[in-house]
């Protein structure tokens, strides 16, 4: 035992630095947070603000040169019928995809959370994780194969002698088209397919948090299984559905690749942003278009937060 109450060790540079950091804990936090804050604050937020700032500039219609003066003219352009159609179309598509994902995803999440045990639990988990992490482009590509005129879906309809039915469906305006791969229905299917894991995981997480005793209590109080589902499980799963919808909604709003590869020539917000900043060289309008999903998502997140959806993320 050393006689002193304090231990004196050979003090290397690191040991001295450690002492300093102990005496000034604020300094340690500061040093830890500095690199990520600089990276995200300067590179990311800086870029974002630079972009937003440009939405308040305008472009000279004749020369195509950007005029660096504050104006709301560019935002006014968003409300021109051709542009406003794009916004409405995108929002409707995002809503449809969200509802579709909830309808198809809920049974999967419900089964995985409440019935799957042991090996099946792992299978269900990976069954959702694998598509989530599979290559986005490969997933889109697989639907190009499926929806192609000579592809498997048409072949299936022909083999089952239902070709007429498909043609009748494709004859419907707005959702139909020449073939499935150039119709809004095709775009919808691909969106649904690509984003559905993002809906399932939060629902499953929120359902798994419902204690067994609560379901037993409901049964004990005389509720039939359907009533338990309606009055106990569904309200408790709602935050999960909303959390999932944040992803499906946001991802659909901002995507420009899927409608470019599968779909009609009618454009979505992402495509408009891409086109305006690229070939058209109209950065202000592209920036203004980019603000639309940000605003929509801000409102959506605000509502979702009030519903307590963040706990299920």
């Amino acid at each position: 035992m050393s006689d002193s109450a304090l231990i004196n060790r050979r003090g290397g540079a690191l040991a001295q630095l450690s002492d300093t950091l102990w005496r000034r804990p604020g300094l340690l936090i500061f040093l830890l947070i500095l690199p990520p804050a600089l990276w995200l604050g300067i590179i990311y937020l800086g870029s974002l603000f630079a972009l937003l700032a440009q939405s308040f500039f305008s472009i000279d219609e004749f020369t195509g040169i950007i005029q660096y003066e504050f104006t709301l003219k560019t935002y006014a352009e968003l409300f021109r019928p051709s542009n406003f159609d794009i916004i409405i179309r995108t929002v409707v598509m995002a809503a449809a995809v969200t509802i579709g994902a909830a309808v198809i995803g809920f049974p999967v999440a419900y089964y995985a959370a409440r019935y799957a045990r042991g090996k099946w639990k792992a299978i269900f988990y990976l069954g959702v994780m694998m598509p989530l992490w599979s290559s986005y482009l490969v997933k889109v590509y697989s639907w190009k194969l499926i929806l192609a005129k000579e592809g498997i879906l048409n072949w299936l309809f022909e083999t089952l002698h239902l070709g007429g039915l498909l043609n009748a469906y494709l004859a419907i305006p707005v959702i139909g088209g020449n073939s499935l791969s150039v119709s809004a229905t095709g775009t919808f299917l691909v969106f649904l397919y690509v984003w559905i894991p993002f809906m399932i995981l939060p629902i499953q997480a929120s359902l798994e948090r419902v204690p067994h005793t609560m379901i037993e209590a409901s049964g004990d109080l005389g509720a039939r299984p359907a009533q338990t589902f309606r009055h106990v499980l569904l309200p408790l799963a709602l935050p999960g559905v909303i959390a999932g919808s944040i992803f499906t909604f946001s991802l659909t709003l901002g995507d420009y690749i899927i409608p470019q590869i599968v779909g009609s020539s009618r454009r979505f917000i992402g495509q408009a942003v891409y086109a305006y900043q690229g070939t058209a060289g109209n950065i202000p309008l592209a920036a203004a278009f980019a603000v639309v999903p940000i605003l929509l998502m801000a409102v959506y997140l605000w509502v979702a937060k009030r519903q307590g959806a963040f706990d299920a993320l």
Partner: peptide, 16 residues
Amino acid sequence: IFGQIAQGIPPYKRNV
């Protein structure tokens, strides 16, 4: 601590 002022001494240098 045993007569010595503990001010500024980190936990890893205290013999407790």
